[in-house]
Design a protein around this nucleic acid. Structure first.
Length: 306
DNA sequence: CGATTTTGACCCGCGC
DNA sequence: GCGCGGGTCAAAATCG
């Protein structure tokens, strides 16, 4: 278990959210402002100081709330990590999604989810240009996204190259075909298509295993297995549920607080939902663009304040 | 200019 | 054998 990669739940910003602001610069500045305000000719400065003090209190309480939220998230993370360890130990001897490929055996269930019931017939896989799927792992990940967004990209940290798109008979939305382009000989393929029932749900089907390390190790699903650097980790996530291997991640950009309210669908057990939520949160904090945006927003507020 | 996406054509398995 | 449908190829277009 690569637990270290999961420990980064704090925001790695240049602005330290835990800095005791009341004790440092703001207090000195306020003292200076108030001293100057003793001058009867500077009533406006006094008013301004009062306003600033009020604003400072407000920001401080906001900061306190955020700190409490982070502490709460850490607690949840620890609980989920131990839960995950239990699951890992229980499932360590099981092999998931080792499915010989036979296309016609694929069908959809009532929820638009694909149910794999491949046979052992490997004779059907004779196309010379195709990869051998005899040992290919197949997993499926459902990602919630904006229904109006026509982009079929599912960001999982790997680098994908689209090589085809097709409208299938039982689904009006097109299915996109991707190949892993990070390593030249990587056999992994990915199919992405919107769910028939829920257009806001993207269903990504992965085939095969990566023959290289994860391009962004810090962004992967670190689930502690020996395969955490490849697609097997995704399979493991999916396979934690006994009957239907579905993981749904809520990636609608309504903020983490919103995700907390309605975080994940299709996964049994609130602790597991929280685990995925935690992972998403930690992935976001590792994203340089995300942290830069947060830093910009916070520093903007700080500049307004000074 | 190299990498990626788009998209029509083609290939191949399967059912009839 | 033929047609259908899913999957792939590859040239052209687009992007950064």
């Amino acid at each position: 278990m690569e637990s270290s990669s999961l420990q980064h739940t704090s925001l790695d910003l240049t602005l330290n959210p835990f800095r005791p602001m009341k004790e440092e610069v703001p207090k000195k500045e306020l003292a200076g402002v108030l001293a100057r305000a003793d001058d009867p000719q500077k009533e406006s400065i006094k008013e301004e100081a009062g306003f600033l003090a009020e604003e400072f209190d407000r920001i401080s309480s906001e900061n306190k709330k955020l700190t409490e939220m982070l502490a709460h998230m850490r607690e949840n993370y620890n609980a989920l990590q131990s839960h995950l360890m239990d699951l890992e130990s229980n499932n360590s001897n099981k092999e998931y999604f080792v499915i010989p490929r036979k296309r016609k055996a694929e069908r959809t269930d009532n929820y638009g989810n694909i149910e794999y019931s491949y046979s052992d017939d490997q004779e059907s896989c004779k196309r010379p240009k195709e990869i051998s799927y005899s040992n290919a792992k197949v997993s499926r990940v459902c990602v919630r996204t904006d229904a109006s967004n026509t982009n079929l990209a599912v960001k999982d940290g790997y680098q994908w190259r689209k090589y085809g798109q097709k409208v299938t008979r039982d689904n009006p939305s097109p299915r996109a075909y991707f190949r892993c382009s990070f390593a030249p000989n990587c056999p992994v393929k990915k199919k992405v298509q919107r769910s028939v029932e829920d257009p806001s749900l993207l269903i990504a089907t992965y085939e095969g295993e990566h023959n290289h390390m994860h391009p962004e190790p810090r962004a992967e699903l670190s689930l502690g297995s020996s395969q955490c650097a490849n697609l097997g980790s995704v399979s493991s996530v999916s396979s934690m549920r006994s009957s239907r291997p579905t993981v749904t991640l809520d990636l609608i950009q309504t903020g983490l607080s919103e995700s907390n309210k309605k975080p994940i669908e299709g996964v049994e057990g609130s602790t597991f939902q929280q685990f995925l939520l935690q992972h998403m949160a930690s992935s976001l904090t590792r994203d340089p663009k995300f942290t830069a945006a947060i830093a910009t927003a916070i520093s903007g507020r700080m500049l307004d304040f000074t």
